[in-house]
């Protein structure tokens, strides 16, 4: 296990995990608003779940076989969800 591999794995677990959680939270809020929930309720629910999602991402980042896949799912998934969350409130009705 090289130092580079460990660094990449740790960075993926924390930075990738944060990106994924950011995407999760913003997407939850955007969907909640879409379905007519008050902003504060949508935000609070997303933030209550956020750290459990982070915990799952964090543990999985070390259990997964391929570090490339960890980066792809966490950072890529986070970016994708953030993109959708950004687009949803601006989407034409």
């Amino acid at each position: 296990m090289s130092a580079l591999h460990v660094t990449s794995r740790v960075a993926a677990s924390l930075l990738g995990g944060y990106a994924f959680v950011w995407g999760f939270v913003t997407l939850c809020i955007a969907l909640g608003l879409e379905w007519g929930a008050p902003y504060d309720d949508a935000r609070k629910l997303a933030q209550l779940l956020a750290f459990l999602v982070f915990l799952a991402c964090f543990c999985w980042a070390f259990a997964a076989a391929s570090v490339a896949r960890v980066w792809l799912v966490l950072a890529g998934g986070g970016a994708l969800m953030t993109g959708v969350a950004w687009w949803l409130p601006r989407a034409p009705a």
């Binding site: 959680v21 950011w22 913003t26 809020i29 902003y39 935000r43 933030q47 956020a50 459990l52 950004w86």
Partner: peptide, 26 residues
């Protein structure tokens, strides 16, 4: 977990960034 959710506004500042208009409107 509850320690993290208490300061969720610091760690995940959505109301100050992506959802600032919605937060203000709310």
């Amino acid at each position: 977990l509850s320690g993290l959710t208490i300061f969720a506004g610091i760690y995940l500042p959505v109301s100050e960034t992506m959802f600032k208009p919605q937060a203000q409107a709310h």
